[in-house]
């Protein structure tokens, strides 16, 4: 059962606040790049390199940007932001076990999709895959996602957060209204 918005909103707000109080604002999408970098570097160890002075860099311009900030995270995966995303998965898993886990049919194809497009799993998985591609490409172009730009950004009065939220909802509302006419 989903928490009433008053409790849920308070709890979520407290988590975002605690993150800023204790460490730094929450963000997630960068870690997709870090995991890509780790996998890529496993295939080809020349991707991320360390100079004699200890600085990390990469043959990939994106990993090398900002003085090799991402290259360093790829070389040292046990860092705050990467572990954070792993811990998020653990937290969500614990919550789902405590509240009764997701029913089997729903795991394959969610109700809203089923109500509009039927139970064909391949169709749903293909769209989920394409959606993931577009979401992460967009998030990296924007320099953040729903958590980093929209939630953390707007709660710090960052102009980038407002610009991002405007773009995201400008695309998301019409897309969902067009694609999901049945509520499910």
């Amino acid at each position: 059962m989903v928490l009433n918005w008053k409790y849920g909103g308070l709890a979520l707000g407290l988590v975002f606040f605690l993150a800023v109080l204790l460490v730094k604002p929450i963000g997630v999408s960068t870690q997709f790049v870090i995991l890509d970098g780790i996998l890529w570097d496993m295939q080809n160890p020349d991707i991320v390199t360390q100079a004699d002075d200890g600085a990390y860099t990469s043959t990939n311009a994106y990993l090398a940007k900002s003085d090799g900030k991402y290259a360093k995270a790829v070389a040292n995966p046990v860092n705050y932001s990467f572990i954070f995303v792993g811990a998020m998965m653990l937290g969500a898993l614990i919550s789902s076990i405590l509240r009764n886990s997701v029913p089997k049919g729903e795991r394959m194809v969610p109700a809203i999709w089923r109500a509009n497009y039927g139970g064909n799993v391949l169709k749903r998985w293909l769209v989920a895959f394409a959606g993931g591609f577009i979401v992460l490409y967009g998030a990296r172009l924007a320099g953040g996602c729903t958590s980093g730009h929209m939630m953390s950004g707007m709660s710090q009065t960052a102009i980038s957060g407002y610009i991002f939220a405007l773009g995201a909802f400008l695309a998301a509302f019409p897309t969902a209204l067009y694609m999901f006419k049945e509520e499910g």
């Binding site: 991002f164 773009g167 400008l170 998301a172």
Partner: peptide, 8 residues
């Protein structure tokens, strides 16, 4: 990027 994320 925001527009793209919203779409996906």
């Amino acid at each position: 990027g925001g527009l793209m994320l919203g779409l996906g």
